[in-house]
Design a protein around this nucleic acid. Structure first.
Lengths: 200, 200
DNA sequence: CGTTATTAATAACAAGTGTTATTTTAACAT
DNA sequence: ATGTTAAAATAACACTTGTTATTAATAACG
């Protein structure tokens, strides 16, 4: 079964990924991808059923890159694991603005797992262990930290903010330690209340 | 100068605004706006030079609505002024998701005033007064609070988060009081250092 | 009541984009 | 070398959207 085989799915993906990285998903279209590969639009439809399928593959590729950011910042040991997750998210937003917008600033869809990911549960466990929090407390603590991290990252990706990693690190520590203090306060209050209840 | 005058600029603006509120700027186009008014696209080009001009007017209208949110939440007195600003931002994100995305989740452009708005300066002044902060400290404090508020609002607008106002209020207080504690700590450290320097 | 100015409707053009039909090209088997 | 066949180029179609040309309608004025 002889043929003439040249333009691979991978090559298309790579060309489209460069486009999306630099100019965003809004600029991805068949003719532009083809132009960057110096070919016609036909090969695209040989490797993908339609543009939607290509775009889905691009999202996957973007997510893989994000995962590598997290893995690297955790492995590097520059920060403790919980903080490293946040720093990686912010670093990704800063270095890959378009991909960040694609992955984290789109409307949530039904595909997005509402289920609790292992990564999420690992972070919750980490907070419980490090700060002596209950499961509910850890979840709220994490929500508060994560919305904060997301705020920094989102404003960075849209160019409202330009942070170096030193300031980002400081902001995360401020928030984290501030919350530890708050949650400590709450524990004290609960204890006081219990004591009172006991003495009555 | 006789004529026949019926479809006003205002009517077009109103129809387009309903569209943008419900379905976002991406869905605003001449034919759809016309369809909603039960007329052709011609009148649009009588009142506006082009669609870009219409869209700019829509952004202005959206901003006016946002300003009314802030004004109302400050005037209501339900929260102290600094907190009210944040609560209004979050409420706007929750009740007008598309408008929020339009105003606050787009890439920053050159039009966006890099200059320090009076509103911003008023909030800084408020923080200085209430918490005894220096100008620099207040600016950083505000940056930390505002990125947090933005994170909550942005995740709400994209449906990753669904908060009632009670939880939003609690989250803001947690962050605010946590930061007050942190900035208090820093002041102590500085004082300790000064004392040491003095004794040498 | 007819003229005229102005608005709106209709139709059309242009550009962009997804997609498919048709033709051409080139690698491999024979 | 040549025929077969997959892949690629070219061309075309469909649809969307911004915009403009042309035509029809209508209100104001004499």
């Amino acid at each position: 079964m002889p043929a003439k085989k040249q333009i691979t799915r991978q090559a298309i993906l790579d060309a489209a990924f460069e486009l999306i990285r630099k100019n965003g998903m809004g600029t991805v279209n068949a003719r532009e991808v083809a132009r960057r590969m110096g070919c016609s639009t036909q090969p695209i439809y040989l490797s993908f059923a339609n543009m939607e399928e290509l775009k889905a593959a691009l999202v996957q590729k973007a997510d893989a890159l994000y995962q590598s950011y997290v893995a690297q910042d955790i492995a590097s040991g520059a920060y403790p694991p919980y903080k490293a997750s946040g720093m990686a998210y912010i670093r990704f937003a800063k270095e890959e603005k378009e991909l960040f917008k694609l992955l984290f600033m789109r409307d949530r869809t039904q595909e997005d797992p509402p289920t609790e990911s292992p990564e999420y549960l690992a972070l919750i466990a980490l907070l419980r262990k490090n700060n002596g929090l209950s499961d509910d407390e850890a979840r709220l603590f994490h929500l508060e930290m994560w919305t904060y991290v997301h705020g920094i990252a989102a404003m960075t990706a849209t160019d409202y903010l330009e942070l170096d990693s030193t300031l980002a690190s400081r902001m995360l520590t401020d928030a984290y330690e501030g919350l530890r203090y708050r949650y400590g306060q709450q524990k004290e209050q609960e204890n006081r209340k219990e004591k009172q209840d006991g003495s009555n």
